[in-house]
Design a protein around this nucleic acid. Structure first.
Length: 572
DNA sequence: GCCGTTTTCGGCCCGACTGTTTTCAGTCG
């Protein structure tokens, strides 16, 4: 049973307990555990099998540990099933509608027999909902509106799509006089792989003027709300963007509050409470004195609480607060730490640009080295290189290295891992390359056991240095392959192989929690853009974002190291 | 159901909005 499925059960239980009117703190305990398991870098199932300490998971105590053990070892949970039996099936889906909480859901069910969103929609149509005590016409209309919005609601948007849109808006707003500190908050700032709405924060001398300029932007399709300090719009592409402006001296607490995550803020608030402090978007208030201190910067806000500044990417309510207390948060990798790209394609295979063009684009970005890793001739891969053409390419790269100053080209290949785990190019050719990346591009439907054996066999080849996009997922398009990643991590760590954080926005593979686990197990990582044109080299920042969410420092990422160190790794 | 620089019991983050109310419950972020 996967962690996402385990988390879903806990979240379901939380919903049902809420419907039941249970102690809200008990409900929150289940929600908290669900979030923790969602972000857990290790499979609960594996922990149980290996006798791991479930109670080390934040938010999991004796009772939940027992339930989790039952759930993952039998695939069922008696407590959950009994709870489900108490309610009509489907009623908890009503909670998905904004505006409906547990109380309303229960009343709709008991008073009108509503068990689904469809039921609710017809009941509203028949005018039944508006007659319920304390509901009324207005609420009924709003609910219908919410149902319709829910039906056409887009999924969360991948960060690779959202970030460019946001940056366009930011650069349009930045020149406005008197507008300062413009910053995205929320999950975008935390660099989650997908985001819902976008929250922009800032400070302004004349907030009204700035709001006006914001809603007048050409990107704005629809203005949902506009006030004196806040506006909400829909931009082309359907993304909702909120802009919120505050006085300069409160910017720090505001940004902190709206960056979240919710779990992080709850944990922070609980800690503040123990210190006799009350935290809010307006500042920090002494519970005894009633005095509120304001904070112009987040740094000052965290320091006032006796904490190291917590980078947004770490604010997921895991261990970051405990570590910030001891001043021992990692010094996360920065884009500027990257010294080269180890995974790019050229016009020799399915890339757009020549080797030389890629080399100068890399040099412009300050890189010291660049690995040319075109596809092998494997079935189905566009214009993959066979043995003969690869030899020609090696010769050309040798020639270019003689001519080019300032950047070193490594000759390499992204060699296909065939269905049986053998490689698509003969050993003899691979041995002539500086760097060999292995990757799966076919037969992705294999079962877990077969797939794992296949990848382990490829990693076993003495010539393979790196496994690229290890789970082969395409965000929103293709599910990850079924593979025992833990076994892959252990094999990579033991065999001195690197795993890739593929920085293509549609891949982001490995993903954050896998990166966290791989790093924990001592696996060397690289960030590769998989660039198919010079512009794609800029994908590096997405890979760095994922690495940061995986708590990576520069030293964990091979391509932040000087060339000599990279070569030493490749030769080892 | 969790958890401990006030605690192994008694707490558990905070503020705002909305619609329906004559003082607030429910919901959200």
């Amino acid at each position: 049973m996967k962690n996402t499925a385990v988390a879903k059960v806990l979240q379901d239980i939380a919903d049902l307990l809420e419907l039941k009117g249970e102690n809200p703190f008990k409900v929150r305990a289940y929600q908290r555990a669900a979030r923790a398991i969602e972000h857990l870098p290790t499979e609960v199932e594996r922990m149980v099998r290996n006798g791991g300490e479930l109670e080390n998971i934040p938010g999991v105590g004796q009772a939940l540990a027992k339930k989790l053990t039952e759930l993952v070892s039998t695939g069922r949970l008696d407590y959950y099933e009994r709870l489900q039996a108490e309610f009509p099936e489907g009623i908890s889906t009503l909670l998905d509608i904004p505006g409906i909480g547990p109380k309303t859901a229960m009343r709709l069910s008991s008073e009108l027999g509503i068990k689904s969103i469809d039921d609710l929609e017809s009941a509203i149509g028949e005018g039944k909902v508006a007659f319920l005590f304390r509901l009324g016409e207005r609420t009924s209309d709003n609910l219908l509106h919410q149902i319709q919005a829910l039906r056409r609601k887009d999924q969360r948007i991948p960060i690779g799509e959202a970030l460019p849109v946001v940056e366009e808006i930011l650069s349009a707003l930045r020149p406005l006089p008197g507008l300062r500190n413009l910053t995205p908050a929320g999950s975008l700032r935390r660099f989650r792989e997908s985001v819902g709405d976008i929250d922009l924060m800032g400070t302004a001398d004349d907030a009204g003027k700035a709001i006006e300029a914001f809603v007048d932007l050409p990107q704005v399709k629809e203005v949902l709300a506009r006030g004196s300090t806040k506006a909400s719009v829909i931009v082309s592409g359907g993304l909702q963007v909120d802009l919120r402006l505050v006085e300069h001296e409160r910017f720090g607490s505001l940004l902190q509050y709206f960056t979240g995550s919710k779990q992080h803020n709850i944990a922070l608030g609980e800690r503040g409470h123990r210190q006799g402090l009350k935290l809010s978007e307006y500042g920090i208030t002494g519970l005894a004195s009633g005095q509120t201190e304001t904070f112009a910067s987040e740094e000052a806000f965290y320091h006032r609480l006796g904490l190291q500044f917590v980078p947004p990417e770490l604010r997921e309510g895991q261990q970051e607060i405990a570590l910030a207390e001891q001043d021992s948060l990692p010094g996360l990798i920065e884009v500027t730490d990257v010294k080269g790209d180890l995974h790019v394609h050229t016009s020799w295979s399915d890339g757009r640009d020549s080797i030389e063009a890629m080399a100068s684009a890399a040099a412009v970005r300050g890189y010291r080295y660049l690995a040319i890793t075109d596809h092998s001739a494997g079935r189905g891969i566009a214009r993959g290189l066979n043995e003969e053409r690869l030899r020609q390419q090696i010769a050309e790269i040798r020639e270019l290295n003689r001519r080019l100053a300032g950047i070193r080209l490594l000759s390499g290949a992204e060699v296909d891992i065939r269905a049986d785990g053998s490689l698509d190019l003969p050993e003899e050719v691979l041995s002539q390359l500086d760097i060999v990346i292995a990757a799966i591009h076919s037969a992705m439907g294999q079962d877990r056991e077969k797939m794992t054996r296949r990848i382990l066999r490829a990693l076993d080849s003495p010539h393979v240095d790196i496994l690229a996009h290890p789970t082969c997922r395409l965000l929103g398009e293709r599910e990850p392959i079924m593979v025992d990643l833990e076994a892959v991590f252990l094999a990579a760590a033991a065999g001195g192989k690197a795993l890739e954080i593929n920085a293509m926005p549609s891949r982001l593979d490995l993903k954050d929690i896998h990166v966290f686990r791989a790093r924990e197990l001592g696996v060397k990582l690289i960030i590769g853009t998989d660039a198919h044109s010079t512009g794609h080299l800029d994908f590096m920042r997405f890979g760095v974002g994922v690495a940061r969410r995986g708590w990576c420092e520069a030293e964990h990422i091979l391509n932040t190291r000087p060339l000599a160190e990279v070569e030493a790794f490749l030769h080892s």
